[in-house]
Amino acid sequence: MSMIFQFRMLCDEDDYFLREYEVPYDMTLAAFRDFINKDLQYRPEELTSFFTADDRWNKLQEFTAMDMGATESDGELLPQAMDRTLLSQVVRKKRDRLIYQFDVLGDRAFFLELTEAMKVEPDKRYPAVTLAEGDAPDQYRAGAGSGSGSVFDDAMGDFSDFAGTDGYGDDE
């Protein structure tokens, strides 16, 4: 193990949720999924996927927990198996992005971006959680997390008094 990838992970369900992970570049996507699930205290699920993503978070290539067999059909890329795909095969440079869809049926996901590639620190253990803020969203119910919300919503909450009628009529 000579390189470590540092990822920042966000969730669109909760603006207070943030994780940073340092993981070996030669880790499989399946092992990365297991590490994330362990950190978030999620139960293992077979219906999960990773996707590579462009700079606008559009899903590109899919990597599934269950092996779908073929990798190409009529020029279209079919899902590849997580357990046979290394991070270094799908993430190559800073700012490359992955989407970890942890709830396929609910279309819920985490958004990961490679923030750094660095050398292994000999006295450090990998994979590692280097930053953990906020509670993870409930694995099975969207919006059920204790920290659900938005920094914007919290800030604007004090201004709710201004909604509705302002006490002035059109003739005043």
Rank of each mutant, 00 (worst) to 15 (best):
Q6H: 12
Q6E: 15
Q6Y: 06
Q6A: 13
F7E: 08
F7H: 09
R8V: 12
R8P: 03
R8M: 10
R8C: 07
M9C: 12
M9T: 07
M9V: 15
M9H: 01
M9F: 09
L10C: 08
L10P: 00
L10N: 14
L10D: 14
L10E: 13
C11Y: 02
C11N: 12
D12L: 11
D12M: 07
D12H: 13
E13Y: 09
E13S: 04
E13T: 03
E13R: 02
D14Q: 08
D15E: 15
D15N: 13
D15F: 10
Y16A: 10
Y16L: 09
F17K: 02
F17W: 11
F17Y: 15
L18R: 09
L18N: 09
L18W: 09
L18C: 09
L18K: 07
R19D: 06
E20A: 04
E20M: 08
E20R: 11
E20Y: 09
E20T: 07
Y21F: 15
Y21S: 01
Y21G: 00
Y21E: 01
Y21R: 00
Y21T: 00
E22N: 00
E22F: 03
E22P: 01
E22W: 01
E22R: 00
V23N: 04
V23P: 05
P24E: 06
P24H: 03
P24R: 01
P24W: 02
Y25L: 11
Y25W: 13
Y25N: 14
Y25C: 14
Y25V: 13
D26H: 14
D26C: 05
M27F: 14
M27T: 09
T28V: 08
T28Y: 13
T28A: 08
T28P: 12
T28L: 08
T28N: 06
L29K: 02
L29G: 02
L29Q: 03
L29P: 11
L29T: 03
L29Y: 10
A30C: 08
A30Q: 15
A30S: 14
A30G: 06
A30D: 15
A30Y: 15
A31H: 12
A31F: 14
A31S: 15
A31Y: 10
A31L: 13
F32C: 10
F32Q: 07
F32L: 13
R33A: 15
R33I: 00
R33F: 11
D34L: 10
D34Q: 11
D34E: 14
D34K: 10
F35W: 05
F35I: 05
I36H: 08
I36P: 08
I36R: 01
I36S: 05
I36W: 10
I36N: 04
I36C: 11
